[in-house]
Design a protein around this nucleic acid. Structure first.
Lengths: 123, 123
DNA sequence: CTGTATCCTGGATGATACTG
DNA sequence: CAGTATCATCCAGGATACAG
């Protein structure tokens, strides 16, 4: 990696954009929700079913945060019973795109990490 | 984004490599430590000073985790007083490389996010 | 200098009940 | 169906003291 690439990578403070982004996507649910939204608009109930283990509270909270940050839209269909769909914005899709390499790194190198752990723990 | 790129991106369970990686790098200190290690070997005390706000406990804990996962090495110089240096491994550098785009996304789009928040909060 | 050990607290998350 | 409200829980992380 070039020094230029590291230029400005000094996320030592809370105000650092990278720090705050990692705080946002590093929580337990955000990336899972974004990943599920990747395929297109999805209803609340579908998200609730597909994202195993998420509580209604955390799903709502996560979706509100995505909407607030401009990463997803919330569309209410005036029907009874209520019908709400969530969809990634352009910004949300761009975020997903740059996180995909992280996903791929994880898939590629998980064995390296697990091997390293095995060796470390054996000592 | 292509469907192929999304193939396998279903980190809905704790065992998912992406899930566990995000858990690791999503904590408050790991990426900050990796970023500081990027320039080369660094002593414990230097890390402690440069990474503002980190406690000794968390620095030790973070470094141990990096070492355990094969992302950094720990070298003890048999001197008095003690002298220990930490350095990224090849694996650690590869991780840093793929996180850099996330860093750049944050720098590029932080204003979009802040604008979106302003609009949302004004409602 | 480079750690460990201990205690403690806040906030993130879960569980449950309720509502338009 | 899509939430909100409330209470309970857990643990990451901080503070402090101590050690080799």
């Amino acid at each position: 990696m070039s020094d230029a690439a590291l230029e400005g990578f000094s996320p030592y403070h809370a105000q650092c954009p990278t720090r705050s982004l990692l705080d946002r996507i590093g929580d337990r649910w955000t990336m899972l929700v974004i990943g599920r939204l990747a395929a297109g608009p999805v209803r609340f109930s579908v998200l609730s079913q597909d994202i195993e283990g998420i509580s209604q509270k955390m799903l709502t909270q996560t979706l509100r945060a995505l909407e607030r940050d401009g990463l997803a839209t919330r569309t209410v269909f005036p029907e009874i019973p209520p019908h709400v769909e969530y969809e990634l914005t352009e910004l949300g899709r761009s975020l997903l795109a740059i996180v995909m390499p992280v996903h791929e790194w994880a898939l590629t190198h998980i064995t390296d990490v697990l091997d390293a752990r095995g060796i470390y723990d054996a000592r």
